[in-house]
């Protein structure tokens, strides 16, 4: 047995680290959504009187857009693994544009909601705005990660940076999927 293994079979450590981070964030979202369900099923009227149920169209479309942005991210990770720096850059840049547009729309909707409903009105408003905000923050962090990747990849593609691309891609798969769950939870009064 020699100490010169060149082909790796297991994933790189940084990727595993991201998987664990995703596990904790998934648990976080799990508790937030469980809190929504808990509060919802202890009242007969949800949303409470005087509060309009959220529309389902815009949030659903946006959630699907975010899922779509995972495709260029996956392409970027695939390209990075094969050492194709420019292709990876292109994939990340494309994903970034979609994600930024997505977040822009979401912030607009959020501000719009805030103008009509105060989070401190009642439990419904509290959990609604908090759950959404936590997801938007995760998207924001993801965008920052994209920007960082673009900066790092603008010069060279080292093994470290290759791991970074696959880790960030995994993060985005998670944020996109959890976005579907959050959207489903938020729009559940309309089912």
């Amino acid at each position: 047995m020699t100490a010169t293994a060149t082909r790796r079979n297991a994933r790189p450590n940084g990727w595993y680290g991201m998987v664990i981070l995703v596990a904790t964030e998934a648990s976080l979202f799990g508790t937030l959504m469980a809190s929504y369900v808990y509060l919802r099923f202890q009242t007969a009227v949800w949303p409470p009187h005087g509060v309009a149920a959220p529309s389902a169209t815009a949030p659903t479309v946006l959630a699907l857009v975010l899922v779509a942005s995972a495709l260029p991210m996956a392409y970027a990770a695939h390209a990075a693994d094969r050492g194709r720096r420019r292709a990876a850059l292109a994939g990340i840049a494309c994903a970034l544009v979609i994600q930024a547009v997505y977040l822009g729309f979401q912030i607009h909707l959020y501000a719009d909601d805030l103008s009509r409903l105060s989070p401190s009105r009642d439990a419904y408003a509290s959990i609604y705005f908090t759950l959404l905000a936590v997801h938007h923050i995760h998207v924001g962090v993801g965008i920052l990660l994209d920007l960082w990747l673009l900066a790092r990849l603008s010069r060279r593609l080292t093994p470290y940076r290759r791991t970074a691309v696959s880790a960030v891609a995994f993060y985005w798969y998670f944020v996109a999927i959890v976005g579907l769950f959050v959207t489903a939870t938020i729009t559940s009064p309309t089912w």
Binding site: V37, R40, F41, Q42, T43
Partner: peptide, 13 residues
């Protein structure tokens, strides 16, 4: 547990 809480809770769901 979830069903028990919901069914026996105020909402009676």
């Amino acid at each position: 547990y979830g069903f028990a809480i919901a069914a026996c809770g105020e909402g009676g769901v």
